[in-house]
Simulated scan of single mutants.
Amino acid sequence: MSFSNVLISWYRNNKRDLPWRNTQDSYLIWLSEIILQQTRVEQGLPYYLRFSEKYPNVESFANASEDQILRMWQGLGYYSRGRNMLKTAKVIQRDFNGIFPQAYADLITLIGIGEYTAAAISSFSSNEAKAVVDGNVYRVISRYFGISTPINSTLGKKEFQAIADELLDTKNAGEHNQAMIEFGALQCKPKSPNCSICPFQSSCFAYQHHRINDLPIKLKKLKIRERYFNFFLIDDGDEILIKRRDNTDIWAGLHDLPAIEFPERTELEVLLNHPDFTNWFNDKTVIQKSSKEIKHILTHQRIYARFVHLNNYNPSIIEKNGWLKIKKTQISDYGMPKLISEYLKNFLN
Rank of each mutant, 00 (worst) to 15 (best):
N279H: 12
I297T: 15
L70T: 11
I111L: 09
Q288R: 15
A162G: 07
W280N: 03
N311D: 05
N312S: 15
E42F: 08
V91G: 03
S148L: 00
H274K: 04
S341V: 12
A119C: 10
Q288F: 14
E42D: 11
T278N: 10
Y313E: 07
N273E: 14
Y27T: 01
A129S: 13
S52M: 05
N177Y: 02
S126N: 13
I317P: 01
L254D: 10
R16P: 05
G335W: 02
E115M: 14
T266H: 11
A259Q: 13
F231G: 03
Y304G: 05
H255R: 13
H300G: 10
D249T: 15
K328M: 11
D256F: 06
Q301P: 00
H309S: 05
F277G: 00
Q178K: 02
A120L: 08
Q161N: 10
F277K: 01
A206C: 09
A185S: 09
R16C: 06
S126W: 07
P337E: 06
T23N: 03
M336A: 14
I303G: 03
A131R: 00
G44C: 03
L168S: 00
D169E: 03
R12G: 07
S332F: 06
N213P: 00
Y116S: 10
S291N: 02
L215S: 03
E166G: 05
K289L: 09
V270D: 14
F229E: 04
R302H: 15
Y78F: 13
P337Q: 13
S126P: 05
E128A: 01
Y116R: 11
E115L: 15
